[in-house]
């Protein structure tokens, strides 16, 4: 073993060849002694510093920091449930809605169609009470005159046709004002076109 090989084996010096080289090579032995002295010096320095440590106030500060941290963490952990709960509620709502929509339904009884237009019979127009035209199925205007209400509305001019009045086709969609007499039962009794 030459010097270079010897120093390459550091720190593994337990082998026989290494010890033999130190016995034969004085420079390496001297250098090795210096290294051992240095190691002993390191151990002495380390031993001298062994009792050195952070002052107790550091531990106290860290303990306080840990308590703050874990306190805020527990709040954070509880807050983590908020989105979970929100999603769960949303999912439950969607599920309930889906269940409502897909549930088998009882067939509903046929409802009478909503009467959107006033059913007007083709009667001969009879002028009555300042131009009011009595409507079919009504008892007339004169029967209970005191309880009647007068309502002014706008209706398409085509409504006049149903009452037998002459209306040109190109003006059928125009709106005209009409006074409607309502009986005490709320049923229209007669109508009068203002124009």
């Amino acid at each position: 073993m030459n010097c270079q090989e010897f120093w390459k084996t550091i720190p593994e010096l337990g082998d026989f060849e290494g010890r033999l080289h130190l016995m034969e090579c004085l420079p390496c032995a001297a250098r090795m002694n210096r290294h051992r002295e240095l190691e002993a010096g390191f151990r002495a320095v380390a031993a001298g510093c062994r009792r050195m440590e952070a002052p107790p106030r550091v531990e106290a500060r860290l303990r306080a920091a840990f308590r703050r941290q874990t306190g805020s963490e527990s709040i954070a952990k509880s807050r983590r449930w908020i989105p979970v709960a929100t999603w769960a509620a949303a999912f439950a709502a969607v599920f309930a809605l889906a269940a409502f929509l897909v549930r088998p339904r009882q067939p509903e009884a046929a409802r009478p169609p909503v009467q959107r237009t006033i059913e007007l019979a083709m009667l001969q127009p009879q002028a009555d009470y300042d131009g009011f035209i009595p409507l079919p199925n009504s008892a007339g205007v004169a029967a209970d005159e005191d309880d009647m209400n007068l309502v002014r509305v706008e209706v398409p001019r085509s409504a006049m046709i149903a009452l037998g009045l002459d209306v040109s086709a190109d003006r059928a969609q125009e709106l005209v004002q009409a006074d409607v007499l309502l009986g005490s039962n709320g049923i229209a009794c007669a109508v009068r076109f203002v124009d």
Binding site: R43, A44, A47, G48, R50, R51, M52, E53, P55
Partner: peptide, 9 residues
């Protein structure tokens, strides 16, 4: 003040 004098081996 916080320095602890090292003990020698």
């Amino acid at each position: 003040d916080d320095f602890v004098q090292p003990e020698l081996a």
